[in-house]
Write a protein that binds this DNA or RNA. Structure first.
Lengths: 236, 236
DNA sequence: CCGTTAATCTGAACACTGATTAGATTGGAG
DNA sequence: CTCCAATCTAATCAGTGTTCAGATTAACGG
């Protein structure tokens, strides 16, 4: 659309938009930096003033997309609300996760494959966070044993992530979005009810760590909004 | 190692070996067809007499690797044996799945990302099959309600696949293989016990389909033991 | 209004890639 | 030994990511 040559502050976003569209059209790897640049009406080298490399572009796109997913999940969980069904929030979040992967498989594949590789990532509502919050609510309401809480986020996350990934990668096929909703609900309810009945081993469960939470903990105070990798020499 | 120029029937496997090593060293995309060819002591164009394209090479490697995973899972389930714990087989298979993704993340990423894209694929023991067999055993032993059986394979597969993928992609981190074993066991037991207690909706669960089973059903009778892609004219 | 300056983009170049083609090399069958 | 199909090579093409010296732009102080 906008093919003015000098974007002045908006080229970065314009490139991300173009890249996302290209991913949707030609898959995760079926496009080039030059194609994205041309689409915004800019020379190939212009992109290198906003991203250290093509990989950096893809990484930035990945975090942008993951952030959007987190918001979708969160608002889905909100709308489910604290009704009669305590598991409703988690189920709704999981449905959003799976639906997203089904509706936008190429973008989902990119997001997952490159998720965690952007050093400047700062995602407010990461999918992992949403799952965590809902599980905490389950414990507060009394629908989940507190002994089963530690690490449960990873079990739930893994379940919905697995279904989403199998669908996005085409390893598994479903007839329409409603079937996906049902399958997601079935899987999540099974996991949650399974977790409520487990007997924790002595010493509790081992603690997994999420790349996203680690990053947030590591960067305390230093707010670098531009990816710092710009100056680094290309590997090999 | 073997740098004779004329491989005569073994170049195909030699290229697959080289590609697998390169994936392990430089990741899924950090290597070139030329590099693999040079490593086997052959010109770049020689590869095109065995694979229609670089993607075809990657696809073939993917199915080879998935087949190996299936065998690992199957023998893990076997060794678990029909002991006192009916869920033991599935748990063992899941552990193998997750461990494999943790020990060989780059290869796992390739296998999953390109799994199902090889038109000549004929995997004897696909991971999906192993899960299916173990679930059937559970029903036979009486440890799983028959009403919950249809489609349960996809719930279980999704769970272990999600954990494996999160680990392989570096989105989730664990301290050592034992922690992975525990996490896998926890997740799988939760799913299975959750499935045993569910109340199926009227009309039963929607039936998902696996790309692998579909392919097997499509090719009935025609037994091509050599992938047919070799002789076929290259697409486009 | 002008000139300075920092931000932003261009053009040309480099090494490398996947892919194609016509022709050379090989090893075994007759 | 001869022939031949299987197998590999050399040369080449368009296109890629990346770099860098220099041109273009927008904004601001005087």
């Amino acid at each position: 659309m906008n093919k003015r040559r000098y974007h002045h502050g908006e080229l970065r976003n314009a490139l991300l938009d173009a890249a996302e569209a290209l991913v949707r059209e030609h898959g995760v790897v079926g496009w080039s930096l030059r194609e994205a640049s041309a689409r915004v009406g800019v020379s190939p080298s212009a992109a290198y003033h906003h991203f250290a490399s093509r990989d950096a572009l893809v990484g930035a796109l990945s975090t942008r997309v993951i952030a959007r997913l987190g918001e979708r999940m969160s608002s889905a969980a909100q709308t489910a609300g604290p009704g009669v069904d305590p598991q409703g929030g988690l189920v709704a979040a999981g449905r959003a996760y799976v639906r997203w992967a089904l509706e936008d498989p190429a973008v989902a594949r990119l997001a997952f494959g490159f998720g965690g590789r952007d050093p400047g990532a700062e995602i407010a509502q990461h999918p992992h966070d949403v799952v965590e919050a809902e599980l905490d609510r389950l414990v507060a309401v009394g629908a989940l044993n507190a002994a089963a809480r530690p690490g449960a986020e990873f079990a739930v996350w893994a379940a919905m992530h697995g279904l989403a990934t199998l669908l996005a990668d085409g390893l598994m096929t479903l007839d329409g979005p409603e079937a996906a909703d049902l399958q997601a609900e079935r899987l999540l309810r099974a996991v949650i009810t399974g977790l409520t009945q487990e007997t924790a081993p002595s010493g509790g469960w081992p603690a997994p760590r999420s790349a996203h939470t680690e990053r947030r903990a590591g960067r305390q105070g230093t707010t670098t909004d531009e990816p710092a990798a710009t100056a680094a020499p290309p590997p090999r």
